[in-house]
Design a protein around this nucleic acid. Structure first.
Lengths: 171, 171
DNA sequence: TTGAATGCAAAGGATTTGCAGAGGC
DNA sequence: GCCTCTGCAAATCCTTTGCATTCAA
C-alpha cells in the first residue's frame, strides 16, 4: 500500500470515466432524470483524476462564469449530492466542510490528514475491516460503512518545520 | 468493553466534576482568565453526565433565557472552545455539526454511529492504536490523534424496523 | 478600579431552496 | 410540448465577531 496511484484499481482515467458515465446514465434513466450538459461537465472533471476535493475546489477548476463549461454553484452542490446518491462519490466532513472522493470502482481505504497543510494521504489496512466486523457483532450493529482519519503532521511538513506557521499562511 | 458506563474511569460524576474543575481553574489561572458564573454553570452541566452533545443540545439543557443559570448562545460557543483548548472536551464533526464528548480522565475510544436514530455508541479496541502506529511509521507521519466512526443501524433500530422512517420522524 | 467576559445584534461561511426561464427527451 | 434542470437570489443552518455593558479579581 498506498499512495493515490498504488491504491487505484488499475484503470486509466479515460476508462474509469467511461464506466462511471455508464453507471451514472443508468442512475439517471432509472429515475427519469436528464443527462444534462452540466452533469456531464462535472462528471468529466471529477473523474479526470483521483484527487480529494470540496465544492469550492471543484468550482475553481471549472471554466469561469460566462465561459463554456461553467456550472453554477447551486448546481454543483445539487450534482455532488446526486453523485453520492449514485454511488460514484463518497462524502465526509473535514474542518466543517464536505470533502468528496471517488467511490465507484475505487478500493476502500482510510486517511491520514495533515493538520498543517491539509493534505489527505490514503492508506489501506484489512485489519480495520476485521475490527469493525467484530465490534459490530458485539453490539449487534448492522454496518454500512466506516471512516477512520488519523490526524497529525505529514512527512513534508515535518521537514519544513523551521517555522510553526502553515505553508498556506506563508504564501 | 464498552457501554458508556463500562468504559468510564470509575469516578462518580461528582468526583469527576471536582477534578475537572481543578484542571479548568488551573487553565484559567495560567492565562489570566476569569472564573465566571457562566463558565461554572456550563462545566457543571456538561460533567454531570457522560453524554455526547452539540451546542444546541447543551443550550436546551440550560435554564431558559431570563432564568438563573442561563448562558447565551455566543458564550456557550466560546466556552466550548475553551473546554476543548483546556483538554476537557474533545470535538468532532458529525452531519455538519460539532459534537462534543468528555476527554479529561476519559479513556480513548471510538464510535458506532446509528444513521437512523443518531445514537453514538462507544467502543474501545487497542488494535486501532497499533494500526495507526504502523501506518504512521510507514508514511513517516507524526500522529496527534485519530477518529474512527462506524456508521450503520443500531440494535434497537434494527428491531423497530417495521417502517423505514426514523423514530425521530414519527414523534 | 480595570481589563476580561457577557449578551446582543449582526456578520460569516457553507449549503440549500423557491421560482421563473432554459433545455432534454 | 412536457417536465426536469438550471441559475439567480434569497434563505437556512451553524458558528463567530464587534461592541457597549457587566462583573470578577
Amino acid at each position: 500500500m498506498a499512495t493515490d496511484s498504488d491504491i487505484s484499481g488499475g484503470l486509466t482515467p479515460a476508462e474509469m470515466s467511461r464506466s462511471v458515465g455508464q453507471r451514472f446514465d443508468d442512475y439517471l434513466q432509472s429515475r427519469g432524470m436528464r443527462n444534462t450538459q452540466q452533469r456531464r461537465n462535472l462528471l468529466d472533471l471529477i473523474f479526470s483524476d483521483h484527487e480529494h476535493f470540496d465544492a469550492d475546489q471543484l468550482l475553481d477548476k471549472l471554466p469561469a462564469k460566462g465561459l463554456a463549461g461553467h456550472v453554477s454553484r447551486p448546481t454543483v452542490y445539487r450534482t455532488l449530492n446526486e453523485f453520492v446518491d449514485a454511488g460514484l462519490l463518497r462524502k465526509f466532513e473535514l474542518e466543517g466542510r464536505s470533502v468528496y472522493e471517488h467511490d465507484y470502482g475505487y478500493p476502500e481505504h482510510d486517511h491520514l490528514y495533515c493538520s498543517q497543510c491539509s493534505k489527505l494521504i490514503e492508506f489501506q489496512d484489512d485489519r480495520l475491516i476485521e475490527i469493525r466486523k467484530q465490534v459490530a457483532a458485539k453490539y449487534n450493529f448492522q454496518v454500512r460503512s466506516h471512516r477512520m482519519i488519523i490526524t497529525g503532521v505529514c512527512e513534508e511538513c515535518r521537514k519544513n518545520r523551521r517555522r510553526k506557521r502553515r505553508p498556506v499562511d506563508l504564501i
